[in-house]
């Protein structure tokens, strides 16, 4: 894993990984309308990170994907999630105080089968985004740490 892979694999990766990431962010942002959600979209984005690490090696990937930044992002996502849970504490923990209120994410949905409006869902949408950030950062940190440890151990054995 310390050398990068062949030219074919590198070209295909540079072509594909942007689309995988955009699909993951689409799944996160449309979690309240289409199948998927924060966890699924975050895992898709993290699989794009894994593709980058496998193709380019750990050293080159960490030039533009800092592990400390991802670690910070993970804690931020979790804190945002818990904050949105606590904001509803006027009624109950995890109360959906934003839905049908007319503010951000607060339009009321049309009842029945319809394509949907992105500005609905209340705290469901906000929590989707928070959990998506948390999951993509957590799985990215796991992949980067494991690959770095694998590379270091392999170098030490030689």
């Amino acid at each position: 894993m310390k050398e990068e892979m062949s030219r074919i694999v590198r070209t295909m990766t540079t072509l594909i990984y942007v689309f995988i990431m955009v699909y993951g962010f689409y799944v996160i942002a449309h979690g309240h309308l289409t199948p998927g959600g924060g966890f699924q979209g975050g895992s898709v984005v993290a699989s794009a990170f894994a593709l980058l690490v496998v193709t380019y090696g750990n050293q080159k990937t960490q030039d533009f994907l800092q592990k400390d930044l991802l670690s910070l992002l993970e804690s931020t996502g979790l804190v945002i999630f818990i904050c949105f849970a606590f904001f509803g504490l006027g009624a109950t923990f995890f109360y959906n105080f934003l839905s049908n209120s007319g503010s951000l994410f607060g339009s009321s949905a049309t009842i029945g089968v319809n394509p949907g409006n992105l500005n609905t869902g209340g705290t469901v949408t906000a929590m989707n985004i928070a959990v998506g950030i948390e999951v993509l950062a957590a799985l990215g940190v796991i992949v980067l740490t494991m690959s770095q440890a694998s590379e270091t151990i392999e170098k030490k054995e030689k």
Partner: peptide
């Protein structure tokens, strides 16, 4: 489809990558 996306992302891609890192090490 929710579970399908999660399974494809985690089970097929990430688990395999992490297992391969562990085998290399």
């Amino acid at each position: 489809p929710d579970v399908a996306i999660a399974e494809a992302g985690i089970g097929a891609a990430l688990t395999m990558a992490i297992f391969i890192f562990a085998i290399r090490a």
